[in-house]
Amino acid sequence: MLTIKNLHANVEGKEILKGIDLEINTGEVHAIMGPNGSGKSTLANVLAGNGGYEVTAGEIRFEGKNLLELDPEDRAREGMFLAFQYPVEIPGVSNATFLKTAINEVRKYHGKPELTPKEFLDLMRDKSKILGMDENLISRSVNVGFSGGEKKRNEIFQLLMMNPKLALLDETDSGLDIDALKIVSNGVNIFKNKNNAVLVVTHYQRLLNYIVPDFVHVLYKGKIIKTGTKELALELEDKGYDWIKPDLIEAETA
């Protein structure tokens, strides 16, 4: 579904991603872990098409298409979804209007008719129930006055509503208490099936108890330095990152 080859990317002239290779197939859950500042959000932003990040080398193919040629909206329409680390507030525009606009734009792209008001309402009821969201949240402005946890939950609500092929979750667990974490993970697990895929970005192992990854990659200073299975995440939780950091290992053996 997604193939990343030798990806290099800059922010404000500084190289952050320094050659990433990653392959994600349908039905898989991947986790990217790594200490703060290692480039996890950068990777998520580059995948979603944030214009503030400059790709200097490498390629990304998504469902056979050259992703780097697509605008963010076209990536979304092709089935890419990014749940933000810091979701944005949009005063004056309700969640309902925002999502209806989003869903219908995607449908239009695929030559499908707009959802009827009833279809939309039913869908919304359905999905908000999964996340235990108050129905009046729907008429509130997007993320305005939401707590950090409510914002994260709202990202997963949007994920369920839009039902993309690939879900990128950037630190979705941060700011969540254990109950909210369970609800949000449950939402992601309901989303997950054999025809889609999930890429979880986190620097805590905690989330991965609930969203169980098939592969765990460690990102450090813009490179994937180790790939393993869910046991790797537990090991990292236990021992921290130092034991696999190549610069530290080199320093020790020198």
Partner: peptide
């Protein structure tokens, strides 16, 4: 705001909208 604009576009909404 560029970040807000990007956020909205990642939901399939075109730049103008």
């Amino acid at each position: 705001d560029d970040t807000a604009n990007f956020y909205i576009r990642t939901r399939g909404i075109p730049d103008e909208l």
